[in-house]
């Protein structure tokens, strides 16, 4: 028991420097909590506003244009904006708050589930965030190309727009599905090593 007591004594006599005073800590904690909530709110608001602008813009364009193909493309883009707003509000409201007062094994399991959900969400980005507006843009570009062909003014400039937005969509896909998923997977792997231990046969619950 002596060794144990010595360990405890060594542990409990650790000197530490308190960089933050208690009252300052309260202010800091309140500020950080508000800041975090505000960041999530602003992020969701910005994305929804952008989607709403896209929705209004392409709906108006669909109403005004005389070209049927371009109208179809605009309707697809407007519909995909509705789809994006729905998904953002329904699934991407910000990190779910697991109850941190659960026991350690239950909390780890909840965290792992959250990582799985986030990974699934990032991997599904192409279906609800990228492909629908991209298809709409392609149809719209085809409409422009056809109308130019009818006028006999097709040139390499007609391909600049599609090339640019294709590059943009590929970049967003890479950011989410390759980079984002890889980061989440490495964090999940670290947690999993802990989770496997906690889910062993010696658990009380």
């Amino acid at each position: 028991m002596k060794a144990k007591d010595e360990l405890r004594e060594l542990w409990c006599t650790q000197p530490y420097s308190s960089a933050t005073k208690r009252e300052d800590l309260v202010k800091l904690v309140q500020k950080q909590t508000k800041r975090f909530d505000r960041i999530i709110l602003i992020r969701n608001l910005l994305e929804c506003t952008a989607a709403a602008v896209v929705l209004v813009w392409f709906t108006l364009f669909a109403v005004r244009t005389q070209d049927t193909v371009q109208r179809v493309g605009s309707i697809v883009i407007a519909a995909s904006a509705v789809c994006i707003i729905y998904f953002l509000l329904r699934y991407a409201r910000g990190p779910a708050n697991e109850d941190p007062s659960q026991n350690l094994s239950a909390y780890r399991r909840a965290l792992l589930e959250r990582y799985d959900t986030q990974i699934r969400l990032l991997k599904s980005v192409k279906y609800w965030y990228l492909v629908p507006p991209y298809v709409g843009l392609l149809i719209g570009s085809a409409g422009v190309l056809l109308s130019h062909a009818r006028l006999g003014v097709v040139g390499w400039r007609d391909l600049v727009g599609p090339a640019l937005y294709t590059a943009f969509f590929v970049f967003v896909w890479w950011l989410n599905e390759v980079k984002g998923v890889a980061r989440l997977r490495s964090e999940r792997a670290r947690l999993l090593s802990i989770g496997e231990e906690a889910n062993g046969s010696d658990c009380a619950d």
Binding site: L7, R8, W11, C12, N103, L104, S105, A106, S193, I194, E197, A198, D202, C203, A204, D205
Partner: peptide, 27 residues
């Protein structure tokens, strides 16, 4: 390893086995 670390940290803070059981979920 993380779980061992958590248990030993709780033990060094003088928590009883019953308390560690409640916190960690281990028997």
């Amino acid at each position: 390893p993380a779980l061992d670390r958590q248990i030993v940290l709780l033990h060094l803070e003088d928590l009883s086995y019953a308390e560690i059981e409640q916190i960690s979920g281990l028997s």
